[in-house]
Design a protein around this nucleic acid. Sequence first.
RNA 1: GGAGGCUUCGCCUAGUCCGGUCUAUGGCGCCGCACUGCUAAUGCGGUUUGGGUUUUGGCCCAUCCCGGGUUCAAAUCCCGGAGCCUCCGCCA
Length: 428
Amino acid sequence: MIDLRLVRENPDLVRASQRARGADESRVDALLAADAERRAAVHRADQLRAEQKSASQAVKKATPEERPAVLERAKALSAEVKAAEDATRAADEALRAAHLVIANVVAPEVPPGGEDDAVTIRTVGDVPSYDFEVRDHLDIGTALGAIDMERGAKVSGARFYFLTGPGALLEFALAQLAITRAVAAGFTPVVAPALVGPKAMEGTGFLGEHDEEVYRIERDDLYLVGTSEVALAGMHADEVLDLSAGPKRYAGWSSCFRREAGSYGKDTKGIIRVHWFDKVEMFSFCAPEDAEAEHLRLLQWEEEFLQALELPYRVVDIAAGDLGTSAARKFDIEAWFPTQGTYRELTSTSDCTTFQARRLSIRSRDADGRPQTVATLNGTLCAIARTIACLLEVHQQADGSVHVPVALRPWLGGHAVLRPGMSLVPTA
RNA sequence: GGAGGCUUCGCCUAGUCCGGUCUAUGGCGCCGCACUGCUAAUGCGGUUUGGGUUUUGGCCCAUCCCGGGUUCAAAUCCCGGAGCCUCCGCCA
């Protein structure tokens, strides 16, 4: 949730943010009204309680003769306090409801517009050309014995898959490369739970208008995470972190689950858009004033990872209307998919400023030792299934084999190419 | 799944039986001041968090795992729940 003080002191800024997102501006005024109402209710209840406290003390000190009268007054006040507390509770809930429906305030640099208005910041690597007919990742993967969609569907339904043989090895190789690089950069590696409670889910902003995307285990009141961001953010809920040595960074590995409710017909072929995949996610907790710089660092680590995979890509600055609820700014990296003749999203990094941390009550101490809400940022290091898809397409060769990027070879038995029917036994 | 125990202001802890200056005790740690040639030791003071209000000096309210209840009054009594621990059962 956004900072209430900001709404009180600079409502126009928040209204402008809502407008940029294409969201309802009047929610800002509803929030202001709810805030004023709550403060009035709290004030009334506090004053009544103060009176009641002294009345209660008087009961104790009263002589037997005055006792009935004093007790009478205390009882009356008690009833008034109870009523005032009910009113406060109602005002609290109204405020919370009004508060939760406002998305994070977009950063001033964010491009205006919607989904199609992302601005390309830079393009890295040359778009490859092929002197043969390119095949899509599913054709290549099936021929390699790396991907089995049909049996995935047989066992679990559409958008499920098996990774087999070289596909399974690729999964582990990518995970190893991602985690190894993250550790070298100073991240703490984490294996995070894929099932989380409602608090973590709501705190990270996934239960608002986008809860259609989320798998829910009703019987146990648990959710399957769509990203380990949820567990990593929730990890430090209700804590005061020591950030005196700089940002606290985690690289979390977990399975990710997405219902893909609104995407019927999109990317139906292969493993680009699936209900389940594994992902290594970077997550940072840092002081609010460091968030922008940290965001650029996350972006840089993402880029270096794709460079290690020898994949051409471009970095785009996502427009206001296409930002997630929690994000103030978001950069996607889109990698080249030869069969689609375009760049497709492979990673995404968001600066959530204090939006998530305020909901989850994650704080640190400022220079004066006062608690302050931290900023949280997340970034994909490697969404494994989609990355495999991209690797297979970009690195395909005329004979149906696939070039293995040098960085991945240590985890692929030293093999420089993958080819149908090959032995997976490591080379000497 | 069954039985029992635990949860207090950073950490440890007193208090809970028997409700009322609990406006929460003590120790450790931390901060400030004093003493000391320096260090150590010692002494004094401070040290939960959130909200409201404010003439910026404060003042008020809440907060003893969470939510209800009883009562004029709840850390304390009653009911429900969560988390952790131990034992039994089951299990990779």
